[in-house]
Design a protein around this nucleic acid. Structure first.
Lengths: 230, 230
DNA sequence: CGTAGTGTTGAATAAGGTCAAGCATTGTGG
DNA sequence: CCACAATGCTTGACCTTATTCAACACTACG
C-alpha cells in the first residue's frame, strides 16, 4: 500500500459523480488535502477502528467494504468500483468507522478529508443536495439489505438475486455472474456451501442450468420470481 | 385514523429538531401543505406500498416503523417518539417506501410533502446540513443494526443491549426497561422466547437479576461486556 | 379476586453452518 | 498446446442454533 501526493488527479476527480458539480477552486482545494493510495489484490486498506476523518473515492479497481466480527465472519456492505465514493456516513458524523476495506484487485483510491467535503457542501448547494441524495440512497439500500438478511430464507434470497439479474418481463434468459460465487454468497449473507446447495436444488427442479463457472441459464423465471416472494 | 387541516401546529413544529432552523415564511409554507393524522394504539398508519411522497413528524405518542415480510415476520426499524422525524430516505429519492407504520399508543403525526422539505433545503443551508446529518446518522444506525442482526448470536445481542443501558464505567447498576420484552426482542431480532431464555441463563449465571416485569439489576457488567464482545 | 395481557419453560423441529473430502475450471509455465 | 497447480466449487455427514408450538405462571389492573 503506497501513498502519494496526487498532483495529476484533478482531471480524474472532475469526471466523477458528485464532484463534477464543483467549481475549479473548490475542487483544487479538495485535491490539495487529499492522498492517493495504491494497493494490490488482497491488501487491507483500512481497519475498522477510530474516528473516521475522511471519505474515499475509487479511481480504478474494486474495493470490498465489509463488517468484520470478532469471530472472523465477514458481512459485505458494498463493492465499490471506479467512480464510487463511500464513507460519508461515518466521516460526516465523526463516528468510529465500522467497516473494513480490502482491495479486490490493483486499485487506486483517493482519500479526501471530510472537512473539504463539508466546505464544498457549504460552497455549492447542488453538491450538498447530491450528497444528501447519496446518503438517502445508502439508507434505502441498507434497509433493503436488512430485509434480505433478516426476513428471507436462503431460497428466497438466491431466487431474488437471480431474478434481479434478468430483464423484468422475460421468462428465459442467459446471464453471466459478475463476481465469484463466494462473493455473491457473501452479499446474500450465505455460506458458499449453502449458496451452492440452493443453486443445485434449483437446477434439479429445472429452474436453472449452470454453464461453466460463471454462466447461468434461467429457464423458468416466473417460478423463480414466485420462489423469491413466498 | 383521522386527518385534519392543522392550523395550530406552527408553534409545535417550530420547537422540533431540524425545523427550528427555518424562517417563519418557509415554515408557514411547509405547514400549509401538511396533514395532521391522529391514530390510536394498534392502528396501522401506512402500509409499505407505492412511491413515498412525504415525510412524517411525531407530535406526540410513539410510532413503530418496521419491515413486514410475506410470512408475517416483523423486523423493527425504529420506534419514533415525540419530536422524531422519519421517512426522508424514501421520500427524497421518490422510491417505494418499504416500511409499515403502526401507532403504539394514541399519536398525533404530521405529514409533510417532500417537496416542502426540498424547498426548505434549498432555502436554508443550515437545514440542508441538518438533514444530511440525520441521513448519515440513519445510515450508521442501519449498519450497526446489520452488524447486530447478522454477525452476533443471541447471547451477544442481549449482552450488548444490556450493556448499552448501563453507564460506561459501572460494574453494578439497576435499570428499568423502556419497552415490553417482546418489543426489545423484536429490536434484537429475536423471538420473545429466545430473549427470555437468554435472560434467564444470565440470571442463572449470576450476571443479572430481574425485578418485576421491567426492572433489572446488572450485577457483573464486566462479564456482560465480555459476553457481548466474543 | 379475576382476567387480560405478558412472560417463561420444555420438547420437538427446521434451517443453516461447519468440517472434510473430492471434483472442476482456469490460467500459467514449460 | 498441454499439463499441472491453484483456486474455486460441490457434496455429504454432522452439529449448533434458534424457532415453533403448546402449556403454564406471573403481574398488573380493574
Amino acid at each position: 500500500m503506497q501513498c502519494e501526493i496526487p498532483t495529476p488527479t484533478i482531471p480524474s476527480l472532475r469526471g466523477i459523480a458528485p464532484f463534477d458539480l464543483l467549481d475549479e477552486p473548490v475542487l483544487r482545494h479538495m485535491i490539495s488535502g487529499s492522498r492517493l493510495i495504491r494497493a494490490s489484490r488482497g491488501e487491507i486498506l483500512a481497519q475498522a477502528h477510530g474516528i473516521a476523518t475522511d471519505v474515499h473515492v475509487v479511481l480504478d479497481g474494486e474495493v470490498k467494504r465489509y463488517l468484520l466480527s470478532s469471530s472472523g465472519n465477514e458481512k459485505l456492505i458494498q463493492i465499490a468500483t471506479a467512480g464510487d465514493m463511500f464513507g460519508e456516513e461515518f466521516a460526516l458524523l465523526g463516528r468510529p468507522c465500522m467497516t473494513t476495506l480490502q482491495a479486490l484487485c490493483n486499485v487506486r483510491l483517493l482519500t479526501l478529508p471530510v472537512e473539504a467535503i463539508r466546505a464544498a457542501m457549504a460552497a455549492s448547494p447542488a453538491f450538498c443536495a447530491a450528497i444528501t441524495c447519496r446518503l438517502a440512497a445508502t439508507a434505502c439500500e441498507l434497509i433493503a439489505q436488512l430485509q434480505l438478511c433478516v426476513q428471507l430464507n436462503s431460497t428466497q434470497r438466491v431466487a431474488q438475486y437471480l431474478t434481479q439479474l434478468a430483464p423484468d418481463d422475460a421468462e428465459h434468459c442467459e446471464i453471466r455472474l459478475d463476481n465469484d460465487k463466494q462473493t455473491i454468497a457473501a452479499q446474500l449473507n450465505l455460506t458458499p456451501e449453502t449458496f451452492s446447495r440452493v443453486l443445485s436444488r434449483f437446477a434439479r427442479e429445472g429452474l436453472i442450468r449452470t454453464q461453466g463457472r460463471r454462466g447461468l441459464v434461467l429457464d423458468q423465471l416466473s417460478r423463480l420470481r414466485r420462489a423469491a416472494a413466498n
